[in-house]
Amino acid sequence: MDNEMTKGLQLNTLAVWHGTRQVASLDARIEPGQILSLMGPSGVGKSSLLAAITGTLDPALRCTGAVLLDGADITNTPAHLRRTGLLFQDDLLFPHMSVGANLAFGLPATLRSRLSRRERVDAALDEVGLSGFAPRDPATLSGGQRARVALMRVLLSEPRALLLDEAFGRLDATLRAQVRDLVFARARARNLPVLMVTHDAEDAQAAGGQVITLG
């Protein structure tokens, strides 16, 4: 089961439906460490496809086809057991938690010891140049800092695939390139398959992988 052929994220004619109308469909395979860019104008169902993969599809919609992650069919797996990390356009740091608590929220509960949990959080902050930020209120961080915390939060949850939903859309041009390079580098370092939804050709170019245009 666990050979090289089945590693990565595989979408077998995954389609999202609203009643009898097909909203969008995608047939693709993303190798570990590869980035697939999904492009197209807004409203063609790119985000719905991502939601179908993460298992957070709006109850009014349904999906057909299959999602395979590292060879396992996760099409009907509950969202929280899929290990498909997700980054939105907004960082969506939980406003009532400190930066450290946000990161700890991502850590698996199987890591029991309080000390090692704190060490992992601190190490994650070190990794993106935010050492000592753990007790901070997320609302006091700059946009770039918040984006980095959101990235580390999702990586700490040890996902087996990374999904980006217009993840750089709110950042200005220079910051955008920085954060994008960081996300791609961290994802490659962990050998994650990445599916990126974007409407910006520059994002797709920077990803350097396959590009699929919907709509």
Binding site: G55, T56, A79, H80, G106, P108, A109, S157, L163
Partner: peptide
């Protein structure tokens, strides 16, 4: 904002 719930679910948090 239900996207908080989506993010949390993708981080492995149950309902």
């Amino acid at each position: 904002d239900s996207r908080h719930a989506c993010v949390a679910a993708s981080l492995g948090a149950s309902d």
